[in-house]
Computed example of a mutant assay.
Amino acid sequence: MKLLLHACCGPCSLEPVRLLQAAGHDITIYYANSNIAPQEEYAHRLVTLEDWAKSEGLPVIEGSYDPATWENTAGRIGDAALADVRTAREQEQPAADDHDASDPAADNPSAGENSSGTQQSTGDPRKRTPLRADVLSVDPARREARCRACYRLRLEETARVAAEQGYDGIGTTLSVSPYQYTQVIEEEVQRAASRAGITGIFEDFRPYYDEATRRSRALGMYRQNYCGCRISDEEAAAERAERKAQRAAAKQAERAEHAAEIAAAEAELKDHRAARAAYDKKQARKRAILKSLREQAKQEVSE
């Protein structure tokens, strides 16, 4: 099958491409990722993908980079979910930052489409309220809705281009990551393909994630530490900070649990050092006395 394969990055493409080629598909990679922010990150991932694809003789097509459209769909859903969290926190303890939680996109992954079905571009993706560690409290269902809208935007674009350029079907590398919503990805691949009148090829590539990681590291490929969007970046940073705090708390708790033992050991060591110092002082006094007696005896003999 002539397949247009949506790819999120180079490392995630390694195993899906290998497996799909082994299945007999003729692959062209399609880089459609308006979710990735900032633009420098988008470009870095694209260059990494293109360099690898060139070495494999694989064509790469770059889609349009339109972060404003992403903000108007998935971004709005993510911000609405965060606003709910912040509102709840403010009800307990008023905070300085205010955010409107009423967002029709929150419950509709297709919100942001106009009557013709095309996406409306609004807002600057950089003019957003920074996240805090409270992102960890976002309802998983709301986070899944954000990711579904993101998948839908990119896969519908992939399917549209595939149909226009004569491809038989589409697929995606997204399902190689254990951090994604695999079932949602499958649903969105099939939905986008069906709407475009082509075939959707889906495979759960998660069992090959470790091998993809190993291969990408061996190749020295750039490996990102967040999914791509500004919200996932801050979520990942907050989660790393939370894990660091948990490790520090566990270490402190362990030390507190053994505080009595540590104090006893330190006291024993202190007593040992004090006894040793007293012993050394006593021995030094004895040696001084013996030396004095020897010198006195020599003097008496010489007289």
Score class of each variant (00 low, 15 high):
A81D: 00
L82P: 00
A83N: 04
D84H: 10
V85T: 06
R86A: 06
T87R: 15
T87E: 14
E90Y: 10
E92H: 10
A96M: 07
D97V: 15
D97E: 14
D98H: 09
D100I: 01
A101M: 12
D103S: 02
A106D: 09
N108F: 04
N108T: 10
S110K: 09
N114F: 02
S116C: 05
S116I: 02
Q119D: 04
Q119W: 12
Q119V: 09
S121D: 06
T122I: 00
A133M: 10
D134N: 09
D134W: 07
D134A: 10
V135W: 08
V138W: 01
D139T: 00
D139S: 10
P140R: 06
P140D: 08
A141R: 13
R142F: 02
R142D: 13
R143M: 14
E144D: 07
R146K: 15
C147I: 05
C147L: 11
R148L: 03
C150Y: 01
Y151G: 02
Y151Q: 04
R152Q: 13
L153T: 03
L153W: 06
L155P: 03
L155T: 06
E156N: 14
E156W: 02
E157L: 01
T158V: 08
T158E: 05
R160G: 01
R160Y: 06
V161Y: 13
V161Q: 09
V161P: 01
A163G: 06
Q165F: 02
Y167M: 06
Y167D: 02
Y167E: 04
D168V: 04
I170L: 11
G171L: 09
T172V: 10
T173R: 07
T173N: 07
S175N: 11
S175I: 05
S177I: 05
Y179H: 14
Q180L: 03
Q180R: 09
Q180S: 08
Q183T: 12
I185N: 07
E187Q: 14
E187S: 15
E188C: 12
Q190W: 00
A192P: 01
A193K: 01
S194H: 05
R195L: 15
R195W: 00
A196D: 05
A196I: 08
A196L: 05
G200T: 08
I201S: 01
I201V: 15
